[in-house]
Design a protein around this nucleic acid. Sequence first.
DNA 1: TCTGGGGTCCTAGGACCC
DNA 2: TCTGGGGTCCTAGGACCC
Length: 339
Amino acid sequence: MTERHILRIHFHLPDTSDADVYERLVEQLHGISPRTQALPPADADCDVTGALRYYGRTPYELAQLIQLRALALYGIATTIGSAGNRMLAAMAADATAPGGISHLDNSPEAIAGFLRPRPIGALYGVGPATANLLARHGLHTIGTAADTPPGTLQRLLGKTHGRLLHERARGIDDRSVVPQATARSCSADHVFDRDELDPDRHRQALLGLTEHLGTILRTERQIVRRLTLTVRYADRTATVRTRTLTEPTHHTAALTRAAYDIYATLGLQRARVRGIALRAEDLQPAERATTQLTFDPGDDKRRRIEAAADKARARFGPAAVIPATTAIPGTPGPCRSYE
DNA sequence: TCTGGGGTCCTAGGACCC
DNA sequence: TCTGGGGTCCTAGGACCC
């Protein structure tokens, strides 16, 4: 593989900043290299391999240019790590003082010098649980993990994690920067004003969520194959249930039936519910939908109403049509996630 | 610096089929 | 006819990133 040059950019966004400031900053990066992947809410990865030649600059100089632009145009400070792959760039950024730039040379010596002395928990993919487990086996630094045979790591962590840990401890990370990644999932949630015990109000909230998700999915021409319901309780615990749909869909009626179904399997008895979230997972292009075999005339009518409502929303805005039964203050917040 | 929550990936185990 | 191993699909839950 030819040598790559990756930047991890962290924007120091004030809490009060507009949501679209971040989007405009990412747009700026696109101008420097189209191979830019947004990592909301405040980061981005930028593959500048091709941009180096175009601009005739080193990675460090490009990082300076990015810092200058963000500061001059938006008054936003940035911290940037520069390295030969995404993991090293992210780790370099982590090890950099706010507002600084770190460039990690791509030589094996420089990479080993950077990685080996660091605590194992500093490695990408190693959280507190894994770090603890490894420490119990005497592996405290990234260097010791790099020297451990892959088979040993795999016995400790499982096949995939063991292999990845061994590669990463040696500075290897093949993940590419994926611009414009398509959404993997899409979710909506509802928080009750006070802990809610009434199942009717739970279902009412669910209806608002399926209505909302259905609208997003139809707008984006996607269908969903899996639904996950999360119910949060007053004691801060939660129940999570996933259901694979018999047929991928983006129709609100089908989503509502599935959501009510999952809700019913919980068998809640006077549970103090704080909030309900619904996630549409395993999204696919709507063109892939199999032919609808349902000839329920009620469904057909609901879909015509749904199509009319979508049109009204497109013309007059999202609040134009709201199901009469969803008398819920506040609109559920959409949340798109990108890989 | 710490915390929390949303999103993603992985694994284990069960059900089912061949 | 019975058994068992290997796929595949699905769900719950754990772990991690940000």
